[in-house]
Design a binder for these strands. Sequence first.
DNA 1: ACCGGCGGGACCACCCGTTCTT
DNA 2: AAGAACGGGTGGTCCCGCCGGT
Lengths: 207, 207, 207, 207
Amino acid sequence: VRSVSSKTKKRSRKTQAQRSQAMRRRLLDAAVKVLRRRGYAGFRVAEVEAAAGVSRGAQTHHFPTRDELVIQTLGHLFRNTQARALKRAALIGKGDDVVQALLRDSEEFFLGQNFPVAFDLVTLGGKRSRISERVKQIARSTRVPVERAWIEAAIRSGVPPAEAEDLVWMTINVVRGLAVRKLWQNDRRRFARLLEKWHRMARGGAQ
Amino acid sequence: VRSVSSKTKKRSRKTQAQRSQAMRRRLLDAAVKVLRRRGYAGFRVAEVEAAAGVSRGAQTHHFPTRDELVIQTLGHLFRNTQARALKRAALIGKGDDVVQALLRDSEEFFLGQNFPVAFDLVTLGGKRSRISERVKQIARSTRVPVERAWIEAAIRSGVPPAEAEDLVWMTINVVRGLAVRKLWQNDRRRFARLLEKWHRMARGGAQ
Amino acid sequence: VRSVSSKTKKRSRKTQAQRSQAMRRRLLDAAVKVLRRRGYAGFRVAEVEAAAGVSRGAQTHHFPTRDELVIQTLGHLFRNTQARALKRAALIGKGDDVVQALLRDSEEFFLGQNFPVAFDLVTLGGKRSRISERVKQIARSTRVPVERAWIEAAIRSGVPPAEAEDLVWMTINVVRGLAVRKLWQNDRRRFARLLEKWHRMARGGAQ
Amino acid sequence: VRSVSSKTKKRSRKTQAQRSQAMRRRLLDAAVKVLRRRGYAGFRVAEVEAAAGVSRGAQTHHFPTRDELVIQTLGHLFRNTQARALKRAALIGKGDDVVQALLRDSEEFFLGQNFPVAFDLVTLGGKRSRISERVKQIARSTRVPVERAWIEAAIRSGVPPAEAEDLVWMTINVVRGLAVRKLWQNDRRRFARLLEKWHRMARGGAQ
DNA sequence: ACCGGCGGGACCACCCGTTCTT
DNA sequence: AAGAACGGGTGGTCCCGCCGGT
């Protein structure tokens, strides 16, 4: 991509660190795909390797165990989501329809492809408690800041500070509930109607 | 299902059937425990056998495959839940606080021990599509009647028929949303506050 | 082996316990072969299975882990050796040449095929400490009775009790030393000469 | 061994060679530790690297394969032992107690830390025949000169030449036998008594 | 000389379903 | 119906060696 002055080392455009980084990324992206397709129960490292076009050795080098790979994958996923959410919340200013914006953001997260993955992992319990704990911690550390950002956004938009927190919680919660329902019955029109209804109630209540 | 022709063997056969029934029940109860502890991914038939105090052969006899056991277990769980819910909905009469009653019923289901199990199973995808389909079907066939019953209860209690469906959906949905949040952060006081808030909003909207 | 009166069950000559026993024996015998050929470091359960003509499942059923198989194999080996040794010691009576008899018995054990196996296992240390401990314990519990039996035999044969213990120890020890030398240099004539020399010295000392 | 032609590069080359030498030494010493702790079966090149504080690449550079490292380690060990033994044998003069001196030397070797390592390696058989052969050869080429040196020392001390060889062999053999017994039962007092007994017998027989 | 990413063979344990026996 | 032996696929991890970089 960037020009190299020396002829002799033409091929070595990438340092080891860069190659390493690229490989990690390929593996994580492939792992996301597999988690979406199979869930944690059906997650096979071999499938990730095949999807990433990477050898067994390379995989274990970067992620020594299956669970480590899963956890890092979740972190990868949540970091991206978080970044988008924070950006959106930051755009909210005085007079903006924060409920509307928050609904859109939540829909993308909860009704998108990532949430089932997160959900699946969070429900792991018992013997798998080690992974379970780390998953919960990742969820906390990425979602709490998002909620905080939206609460501040709500206040900026004009919602009374005393009500902002509940408003944000409830709005997120409504979408979260639909995400679960979607798992066994995906009725988009009804979902849209319900969200619209909440939108009206929330604006009514906040005004 | 099969006809009983001989009277003479009635007694002994009945004993057999009872024993069989008892064994099935022990296995299903044990399977519930294991599903709670380990989730589907960590579900091992051997652990069920140990928990039930039953031999390998007995388990295989009653539930030929692992997935069959899981599905029957889920059915077992949902049937119980459904029965309780229908009973409660039937108690609602004119003037009763249907939102309150529905919230209580939903809390028991969604915030109780059974929901994570159901949730875990519903998220199975891909390769496991066979079981996944049956799980969804069980969810549909047990939850839809419950919703219908509550809608009717709402109408009986005095909610305008045009609003009853949305009211029930939204009320259930709010609790469902909290059930997910609970997976990684169980803040009971805040949950109670949110449910109370919804209670007030719903009654305000319905009045 | 035993006659079965019923015609219909002609084929079921063996009980489950007998079949189980036979299978264990086949596995142990095969494991002995593999341990001799490869040593502990090169011991592969798959090779044992192939040698025994047994499936992976059957193997794990009887010996859940590789190390368990190894340990049981050693026990198997030592039990046989011990039985033979005790029988021989019991034959010694007044006036018999106990040193000669003990030398023959020790030669069979230490210079035979079994000793290198035992030796290999006893040297395992460190991380493998669990197996190492059990191996040592097996060695102790089978060899100590053998030594005791020979000491008693020596006394019966006429060796002064005060000298019997040292005599037995030293005789066994001489053969044991040659067993080690044999590992890298097998000079039978010289070994025979040395043992003969010790025989003369011992009889001289004991007289 | 190799001639140094250029004077100009003497300094820098020496530095390189020294560093190389030091690294080899660190690796060999670490390998000794690991062999003692784990035996050949549990020997992992990664553990050697960790113990030596050396990178994967450096290890590979000096010892291209695992077995090469093991063999070099054994050579390292035996060379040291041999040097000490030859020095001790050389000190023996007319009238000295050669049995006593040989017992001391043998105790250090056979009852010390190095012998189990050697022993473990010598027992490797079958598939590992390549390494096994080299190990035996190392044992032969270091031990035979030691034995010869002691035989000569015995003759110098006054033992009749016809008896010297057997005396040395037997003395070494007695200690070697105890080395094996020590593997599963370390009874120092008894060992000392037995060695003392042999000392008296040998002097008696030699006089 | 030294470093570490990477390739990939090997091996064991897990786990379920089947097949006798009792 | 219940119990236990047996079959065998599968998958994660280990571990070594290679080789392109530094």
